[in-house]
């Protein structure tokens, strides 16, 4: 795929087709050794892919997982013949943080029927961003329930679609969001704004990880812009 084509694909589609030659993305540093994960979860059209694209070093890629039943992978491919399988697609991007560390961002649909898959796919994730559209807050209820049940730390980011403004309290109330979970505003189309959402999540994770090991001294990271 030449670069003109990939730009066109990017503008119209957002994600690449399967089988795209890896030559279209820059290679990781040869010393890259630690892959980290953050999940961006939310309802359809809330801006997940847009946010991934805004901060990613690479054009968002798309892949899929095939499951035969809840909680399991394709555990018997001979049995797949004639059996119903569930296929879920998700997109992802990546940010090289330094020569050793690469952060992968996953955009995950928050609908109820996908959650048994996310539980498995995203174990070991640092944390999650629940992206919400205030016109459809109820789309995120299930995702928040699930993250809480799973013990995955998260923040909520309100994506700005220019609709009517609600106060922070109104949004918190509608989401039944505890006071200790950050709620931030963002514009997923903006690289800076999307980066700041990730920074807010990592600050939250940092606070959680240091408060649970209060006895050991950790230097607080400098505050962000």
């Amino acid at each position: 795929m030449d670069s003109a084509t990939s730009e066109a694909t990017r503008d119209t589609e957002g994600t690449t087709a399967h089988g795209t030659a890896p030559a279209t993305r820059p290679p990781l540093h040869s010393s890259a050794a630690n892959g980290l994960k953050i999940v961006i979860v939310g309802g359809f059209g809330v801006g997940k892919t847009t946010m991934v694209r805004s901060v990613s070093d690479i054009r968002p890629l798309n892949t899929e997982e095939t499951m035969t039943r809840a909680g399991e992978g394709v555990d018997d491919l001979s049995g797949v013949r004639g059996k119903t399988t569930t296929t879920i697609a998700f997109d992802f991007g990546r940010i090289s943080l330094n020569d050793r560390t690469v952060l992968y961002l996953f955009g995950a649909p928050g609908q109820e029927r996908f959650w048994f898959l996310w539980d498995r796919l995203f174990s070991g994730t640092l944390g999650a961003v629940v992206l919400v559209d205030t016109r459809r807050l109820e789309d995120s209820w299930y995702a928040i329930d699930r993250l809480e049940a799973h013990g995955t730390p998260f923040i909520v980011a309100r994506n700005d679609f220019g609709g009517p403004r609600h106060t922070t309290e109104q949004v918190r109330e509608a989401l039944d969001l505890p006071a200790d979970i950050p709620l931030v505003d963002c514009d997923a189309r903006s690289r800076e704004s999307s980066r700041d959402v990730l920074i807010a999540l990592v600050h939250h994770l940092y606070a959680l990880s240091t408060e649970s090991t209060e006895s050991t001294t950790h230097h607080a990271p400098e505050t962000s812009s």
Binding site: N34, G35, L36, K37, I95, S96, L97, N98, T101, L103, G124, L126, G127, P153, R195, L198, I199, V202, H203, L205, Y206, L208, S209, T210, S212, T213, H218, P221, S224, S225
Partner: peptide, 24 residues
């Protein structure tokens, strides 16, 4: 991936610091 010393624990603060520096 190495996120923390203990499986299922919160991520290691040192790794989180690296993430913050990289994001900034």
């Amino acid at each position: 991936p190495r996120t923390s010393d203990v499986a299922d624990a919160l991520p290691d603060p040192d790794i989180l610091k690296q993430v913050l520096v990289g994001l900034r």
